[in-house]
Computed example of a mutant assay.
Amino acid sequence: MKLNRRTIFGTLTAGALAMSMAACGGGGSDDEGGSGDLASGELNASGASFPDAFYATAIEAYAEVNPDLMVTYNATGSGTGKSEFGEGLNDFAGTDSLVGDDDGVEAGSFQYIPTVAAPITVSYNLPGVDGLQIDQETLAGIFQGDITAWNDPAIAAANPEATLPDTAITLAVRSDGSGTTTNFSKFLDEATEAWTLGSGDTIEWPGNAVAGEKNTGVAQVIQDTEGAIGYVDLADANEVGLVTAAVENADGAFVAPSLEGATAALDGAVVEDDLSYNPLNAAGAEAYPITAPTYLLIRTEYEDADIAAGVKEFVEYLLTDGQELAAEADFAALPAGLQEQALEALNSTIAD
């Protein structure tokens, strides 16, 4: 059954925001540093490495709001996070890709909660060559192994002023099941005619690929390998100082990865009834074309009421005060309309 679509435009109502802020931090700590009526205990989560920098920043800040609830997020990759969620091994999971039949999660037992979005960069290591532009069809040709040298005419055509060496191209890809891989391959699958490798958490890459674990592992492969090119989130690319390419978007403009470009892509996206959405190759001259969403999976039922209360409180924090931390971790905050929808879904999924 095809889901109805709703645009993500809108304004977060003052009532919804005030209610959520009260739940997150308005319980008030006493003069001795206690946390009043706020939740306590431990939450264990695992999943996507793509949003790890944001979650690490938010968890650190949240500890100042409520030191009695300890939140641990283990960046195992989307595939492992979804699997562990289905097996009941975590309290909530992070994922950049949607749940599939082989993820071990019973249908109807979870709710997607979008949190932030960010560019998936196309980063490369080619000394002396900065500011490359790569069109969509050429990018597909590179990553499926049709284009194997940096001085290939297809790359040169978009970079007439660059002096391109005949260095062999090494693809830096993920070794683990990854939502970053899903979104990158989905972009190539949807945007190009050339792409033949499909899309998913894992891809059968050509023989010139070198795999790294998590986004940090891909970034390390790129950093260590002259001639490498790979896909990695903006936060990890910035962390190690990788050089990134401008990628052709749906309007034919070459756009470098940035939070502004990600925000422009979100403005053109729509959200499904289950709160999933697709900002890839969004229209708009300023939109960065490989902008990826990320979600938390929360349970529709928690056996432990304390865990349920803790999950609700922490996720409300991510959707309110936590949004103000997104930019410092190289992530784009949710548009107001989607933020409101996520809060409504959280409140209806985990009732007080």
Rank of each mutant, 00 (worst) to 15 (best):
A269C: 06
T263S: 15
E260D: 14
G128A: 04
A22N: 14
T182C: 10
N278P: 06
D189W: 13
A292S: 14
P279I: 04
L171Q: 06
S97D: 11
A332V: 03
F314M: 04
G128P: 07
F314I: 02
A39V: 00
A107V: 10
S46V: 07
G230C: 10
V270C: 11
N151T: 07
D135E: 04
P51A: 01
G25R: 15
T80W: 09
L234I: 11
S276Q: 02
V99F: 02
A246V: 00
A14E: 15
P160E: 01
F187Y: 15
A22M: 13
D176R: 10
S185P: 06
L164M: 09
G28S: 12
G145Q: 06
N238W: 09
F184A: 12
E239H: 15
V116I: 14
S123C: 04
N208S: 08
M1A: 13
N44T: 13
E303K: 12
A265W: 05
S78K: 01
T163D: 15
R174D: 13
V255M: 00
A209T: 02
L164A: 05
I169A: 00
E239R: 15
G145W: 04
S35I: 12
G25P: 11
A327W: 04
N90K: 11
V218F: 06
D251T: 10
I222F: 09
E248F: 00
Y62I: 05
G33V: 02
A168V: 08
P127R: 05
S258C: 03
V271F: 08
E137V: 02
V71D: 02
G145A: 04
A253C: 07
W205C: 06
P165M: 03
E161H: 11
A262N: 01
D251Q: 11
T80N: 12
N159A: 03
T182A: 14
G47C: 03
T115Q: 12
P160L: 05
A118H: 10
A56G: 11
G81V: 01
T138W: 00
G230Q: 10
T225Q: 08
D103L: 01
F50H: 08
T57H: 10
A250W: 05
G310A: 03
E239T: 15
N44C: 09
T167C: 03
T291W: 03
S78V: 01
G94E: 03
E286W: 08
E42T: 13
D30A: 09
K312A: 12
G94I: 04
A39C: 01
V71G: 02
T180E: 10
Y277V: 07
A162Y: 08
D306K: 13
S258G: 06
